[in-house]
Nucleic acid binder design. Structure first.
Length: 249
DNA sequence: CAAGCGTGGCC
DNA sequence: TGGCCAAGCTT
């Protein structure tokens, strides 16, 4: 849930989710569409699908227990380098560099002296994070750097006066030179927006909906069909024989 | 490796 | 107001 989504927006959804499905086995027992439905408006609904697939994999292949091993975690659906490191470190005390957007920004500023990290994670960043990682207390160190980035060393308007490493921050010592603005992602009029509207209809309906119910939420027919086909191809929607649509069973 | 993938809040 | 950003992953 936290992938590309602010913590404050995740919290309430996560609470309800954990109440409903306290273990991987509980979630695995549901059809994937229920995961998508209760994902709500968190965004990137494919994550809901993958979390559900992850729960089923954990249930079927790991006796219902979340693996502690980094490589085993990495093999699960929806779990990449960051999530594998975070779970192995924070949940199981493992020693892994956790390179999320916060950590990348903090290290980029404090060590490299630049306002923003590169667009994609580089080998140099991984090397640096690995070098800085303490042999003892890596989980606490990781959380600390992450929190520093989330609360103090923020993307916009960092609170350098309250930063515990302000005296040694390369970026501050260099006079906080402005970085290159990242190119923003457009949204209005995109397939993503169209998919979002279509899926919102399916989430709200607790059963198959006629295609006409989907047609009304997006005017441009070519794009609408493409987006709908995309949702079906991604496993986020199903077409029934009578031409109605629903969340996947 | 670049592209594609949601949504909402903030300045 | 609109661009930017948020505990990334997959193809």
């Amino acid at each position: 849930m936290l992938q590309q989504t602010p913590v404050v927006r995740v919290l309430p959804v996560w609470q309800q989710w954990m109440e409903r499905w306290p273990t991987p086995a509980h979630l695995a027992a549901e059809p994937p569409g229920e995961a998508v439905r209760h994902w709500g408006r968190l965004g990137y609904p494919r994550r809901a699908l993958r979390l559900h697939a992850c729960a089923r994999a954990i249930t079927a292949e790991h006796d219902g227990e979340v693996p502690a091993d980094h490589a085993t975690l990495l093999a699960l659906p929806g779990i990449g380098e960051y999530t594998a490191a975070a779970v192995a470190s924070f949940a199981f005390g493992g020693t892994h560099p956790v390179l999320d957007t916060n950590v990348r920004r903090v290290l980029g500023r404090a060590v490299r002296g630049e306002e923003y990290p590169p667009n994609a994670t580089t080998a140099a960043e991984r090397r640096l994070a690995q070098e800085l990682l303490p042999a003892v207390g890596a989980p606490v160190w990781g959380v600390a750097v992450m929190e520093l980035g989330a609360l103090v060393c923020t993307a916009r308007g960092p609170q350098c006066g309250q930063c515990p490493v302000q005296e040694q921050c390369a970026w501050r010592l260099a006079g906080k030179p402005p970085g290159v603005a990242r190119r923003g992602q457009t949204y209005d009029g995109t397939d993503r927006q169209c998919r979002g509207r279509l899926l919102a209809v399916l989430r709200a309906a607790h059963g198959p909906v006629p295609k006409t119910a989907l047609d009304v939420v997006w005017d441009e027919p070519v794009q609408r069909e493409r987006a709908l086909d995309g949702l079906v191809a991604d496993g986020l929607a199903e077409v029934l024989d009578d031409g109605t649509y629903r969340l996947p069973i």
